[in-house]
Design a protein around this nucleic acid. Sequence first.
DNA 1: TTTATTATTGAAAATGGTTTTCATTTGCAA
DNA 2: TTGCAAATGAAAACCATTTTCAATAATAAA
Lengths: 154, 154
Amino acid sequence: MRGRGPWWHDRFQEYGWRITPSREIIMDVLHNTKEHINASDIYIKAHAMNPAIGLTTVYRTLEMLEKTGMVQKFDFGDGMARYELINNPGAKDHHHHLICMNCKRIIDYTEFIDDEIDFIEKTQSKLSKKYNFKIAGHMINFYGLCEQCSKAMA
Amino acid sequence: MRGRGPWWHDRFQEYGWRITPSREIIMDVLHNTKEHINASDIYIKAHAMNPAIGLTTVYRTLEMLEKTGMVQKFDFGDGMARYELINNPGAKDHHHHLICMNCKRIIDYTEFIDDEIDFIEKTQSKLSKKYNFKIAGHMINFYGLCEQCSKAMA
DNA sequence: TTTATTATTGAAAATGGTTTTCATTTGCAA
DNA sequence: TTGCAAATGAAAACCATTTTCAATAATAAA
C-alpha cells in the first residue's frame, strides 16, 4: 500500500502515528506555506479548512513533527515560535536571518548562501562524526541594528 | 571624568541611562557569568547580592541592554530566553550550538570555530554593506538528534 | 465486518516566562 | 539643595504553550 497517499503517510506509519483529518490538514498547511509560520497562523488556516480542528492539536502535532525532525522550530525571541517543514519541496529557498535587536525586524537573506554551503557541509560532517549527532537542519542568525534603528539612535 | 568607573558606565551615560545599584549588580552578574544565563538565574544571583532587587528590574535592564546591542539574547526554544554580554572579556570562548530536537539538550562546541571565522567575517561585511545593518553578533545552531535520542528511536 | 483497544481529540483550565501597571523612591542636572 | 523625570518593586495582567479529562475515532484483531 505504499505510494498511495501523500509522502508523509509513510513517515507517520513508520512512527506508529495515526493518520487523522486534523493531521492531514496541518501537514497540508505546512506544505503550502513557503516561510516559517507560527502555531496561531497554522491554526487559523487549518481551522478555515475544517472548524473542528483545535489549537491544541496544532501544538501537539508540531511537537511530534519537531521531535522526529520533520519540522524545524525557530525561535527568534519575539515571543512565539515558528515552524517550517524540513526538505519541503515547495518551500522558499533556504535562507538565513538578519535580526534587529531593537525593533525585532527579521530580514531573510539568500544572497550569500552559495558561499555558505561549503562551510556548512564541512562543519556539519565534522560535528556529526564527533558528537554522533544526526543533523537535520541549521540556523544562522546575525544580530545587530537595522538601518532605521541605528539612525534613530544616533 | 572618563575611565573612573567600570567600562560600561560610559555606555550608560551615552544612552542617558542612570547608574543605579540594581543596574550595577546586574552588570556585575552578567560580567561574571561565562555562559548564557537566563533571567531567573540572573535574578537569583543579583538578589543574593542585594535582596532589594526585583525580577522586574532584571527583565527591564536586559531589554535595554539587548536593544542597544550590549547583550545578545538567545532563544533555543525551550521556554526561556538566555542572555550574554557581547564582547565580555571574561566570557567563555565563543561557541556555536548543536541542539537535539527531541530532548532539547544543547551542546556548545568550539572545535571548528577557527574555520568559521573567515566565513563569518566575510558574510558579515557583505551583509552589513548590503543591508546597512550594524552587526553585533551572530548565532549558529545545528539541529538534529543526539546520540541517545537517535538510538532510542531506532 | 465487527469489535476492542488505545491513540487522538477539543475545550477549558493551568502553567510559567515575561510585561504592564501603579504608587513610591531615587539619580542627577540645575 | 531641590525638582522632576527616570527607575523601582510588588502585584496583576498577559499570552504562548501545555496539561487535564472525558469523549471520540483510527486501527488491529477477531
